[in-house]
């Protein structure tokens, strides 16, 4: 895979403080991370350690309190079609059909009708929802909704796909299937993916790098490149070795906190 010098996403000493009436929350403290184009990065960590906050800063939904969030070296100032978010609860537009949900981005950017249609057809195909093109979101299963959410972001030419526990609400089988499909899409398209998960196994199955975060204040504890060959076998000894190491890293912190 060709590697370019400038990282596509760069987080430099980013801190995020939320001020509520009677307290301040250090959601993220001095986070540094640099992501190259085409990388698949998983963020993992206990609840409240700032994973979503970091993802939302990359998306442009939140601004860092201090530090810089950069894309291709320029500051991220707000949401942008180049960085698409896939939410855990789908956030599809319930009044639009599958087709129109996927076409929402291209249509918003003012592309010609014919171009929108062509794009939509391509991505409906890509996620295998041809038969459901005219269904509304409430008629779809969770897995199908998440496929639409992914297609919606891809159809809009996103370079970076940000996923916040996208498969967290799905049953195990659907989840595995979507993981496979996501890897397949990622390998075909050269997308950059930042993926938040609670599952160590999911992270190790998917990622080039697993970033472990810890709470109180939210910080990046370690950044672990995975040299495991793809396709990965969750039952292999290598996979289990890595799982053990990651699990230790993830839980070492809990011990510290209790002490």
């Amino acid at each position: 895979m060709a590697e370019s010098k400038t990282p596509i996403i760069e987080i430099k000493q980013v801190s995020k403080v939320f001020k509520l009436q009677d307290q301040t929350i250090n959601a993220l403290h001095d986070a540094n991370i640099s992501i190259r184009k085409g990388e698949f990065v998983c963020l993992i960590g206990a609840s409240g350690c700032g994973k979503s906050t970091l993802l939302r800063i990359i998306a442009g939904f939140e601004q860092p309190t201090t530090g810089d969030a950069l894309m291709w070296g320029s500051p991220i100032t707000g949401p942008d079609p180049t960085r698409g978010m896939v939410f855990q609860d789908y956030a599809l537009f319930p009044w639009l059909s599958v087709r129109d949900n996927i076409g929402f981005g291209p249509a918003s950017r003012g592309l010609a009708k014919a171009v929108v249609k062509e794009t939509v057809d391509k991505f409906i195909d890509l996620v295998g929802l041809g038969k459901f093109a005219n269904a509304y979101p409430h008629q779809l299963s969770g897995g199908m909704k998440q496929r639409v959410a992914i297609a919606r972001v891809l159809a809009n030419d996103a370079e970076v796909v940000l996923m916040d526990e996208p498969f967290g609400a799905l049953d195990a089988m659907t989840r595995e299937r979507l993981q496979d499909e996501l890897l397949d899409i990622w390998q075909r398209t050269g997308l950059t993916v930042v993926f938040v998960t609670h599952s160590i196994e999911e992270a190790i199955f998917l990622a080039d790098r697993v970033v472990v975060m810890t709470p109180g204040p939210g910080r990046i504890e370690s950044d672990n490149p995975l040299l495991l060959q793809r396709p990965r076998d969750v039952a292999s000894p290598e996979f289990n070795d890595i799982r053990r190491v990651m699990s230790a890293k993830l839980h070492s912190h809990h011990g510290k906190k209790a002490a």
Binding site: A59, G60, F61, G78, P79, D80, P81, R83, G84, M85, F87, D89, A91, L92, F93, P94, W95, L96, F104, G105, S108, R109, R152, V153, N156
Partner: peptide, 29 residues
């Protein structure tokens, strides 16, 4: 209106006043 829908619209390139017609009105319908 679910605030997530505003975020979804804005990351798809529909921002500002366009959100009124494309998100608020249909969601409130």
């Amino acid at each position: 209106v679910d605030p997530k829908l505003f975020e979804a619209a804005s990351m798809l390139g529909c921002q500002g006043n366009a959100q009124f017609y494309k998100v608020v009105l249909p969601a409130a319908l």
